[in-house]
Design a protein around this nucleic acid. Sequence first.
DNA 1: CGCGCTGTTGAAACTTGTCAAAGTTTGTGG
DNA 2: CCACAAACTTTGACAAGTTTCAACAGCGCG
Lengths: 247, 247
Amino acid sequence: MPPRSTIAKFPLELVKTACSNCNLRELCLPLGLNDHELAKLDELVSARKRLKRGEHLYRSGQPFDAIYAIRSGFFKTDVLVEDGRDQVTGFQMTGELLGLDGISSEVHTCNAVALEDSEICTIPFTHLEGLSREIHTLQHHFHKVMSREIVRDHGVMMLLGMMRAEERLAAFLLNLSQRFTARGYSPAEFNLRMTREEIGSYLGLKLETVSRAFSRFHEDGLITVQQKHVRILDTQGLKKLMTHERE
Amino acid sequence: MPPRSTIAKFPLELVKTACSNCNLRELCLPLGLNDHELAKLDELVSARKRLKRGEHLYRSGQPFDAIYAIRSGFFKTDVLVEDGRDQVTGFQMTGELLGLDGISSEVHTCNAVALEDSEICTIPFTHLEGLSREIHTLQHHFHKVMSREIVRDHGVMMLLGMMRAEERLAAFLLNLSQRFTARGYSPAEFNLRMTREEIGSYLGLKLETVSRAFSRFHEDGLITVQQKHVRILDTQGLKKLMTHERE
DNA sequence: CGCGCTGTTGAAACTTGTCAAAGTTTGTGG
DNA sequence: CCACAAACTTTGACAAGTTTCAACAGCGCG
């Protein structure tokens, strides 16, 4: 192992934790920072952590002291209630942040579970606040990220509050498609990382209802489904369905 | 009218916008600030604004440049969709903040409507970010407030995703009760500021279903209802109902 | 004082959940 | 590498919960 100070000269640098050479710069926290600011952010984002499928990044009730950026992989967050019921509150993918819910009470209020082998960057929250006070752009971007989370949640509330089963699933698929697109993947073809039950929990439906809706979409020629593999055939059709339009 | 600079010498000061003599200090943004910091916050919180019942504080699509603290009164936020449906995303009372959703895109994403005559304080957002960089405590508290909003939204998602009609209404009443209590009002007796339809929209139910659930609670001796006046007779009973317990 | 908005209640229709059975895929251990 | 178990998915039939439609009552604002 070379001494730390020389690492930068080695190709190994490419695997070092560093926002400055992360290709998620434009999706993640560093958005809009200049080189100097990026260097400061690098210092604060400590070691990457790897999680295998099924492992928890954090659990409800654990003390909060950092937020996490997903470097690669796929997560779900969920809340369990005493009576045994649980609700998936979100699915998070590459470049998205986890743990914002913990800021308010300094305790995590949900569980974050990797749905595939994943890699995350840890961002100690106190440090982030410190750096935010120095770097205006970072502060503002962080506020935007938190606000975006609120807007996203309002979207889910609308989905749960006023859509029926098939509309919810259509909205869900379109949302995934859009997020995959933003990450350079195909808008029309992807693998679901979650089970029908997890989708159902997120959408406020039972797994059987989700399965039936998938079958229905298939019959209607909107998509093809084979287990976890989905291909969207008719985006417009899904959009129409989602917005409740009836011909 | 005395010149502005002398206002502070007059009893009129009592009605001047000032966090430092606002009795919501402990609920609102100033929480935890010392006198010096409070004075700085005072400078930034510009004129109070009064709204009559039914008036909009802001509308979806309008440019965002400030957040608002409710000095007195009661609000709802809602989102309208093209197809005519709408969803109430929240009810806000004294000491709570409005407008956080607008930070992400610099455009308001919902409507905020006064449900009774109300008074609000305007907090220009750029100034708030500026002051946040100076006052550590304010920064942290603001982050907590945003995070609390996210946690609250998760609560609503759980309500919409896994509770049935009566459970939702029970949760709603208990939540109101708790918030009134925190503001020094009776935990057991209050007037609803919103219609059955608005409650229904918030809870993902039709107004008839809400009305029936109220009647049911009344029959079961959990509450008394007369139009908008509600008195909770059996808090424990409501809690049991909410958590799905069946005897 | 009456008109309109809000709330209540009933019956029927519809959507989703529940229960059950069978098919499929995945992972593990022999 | 196969066999078997466990987990996940699909589908059907029926039950339960919620919405829809409709009629009517009550309150409150002008």
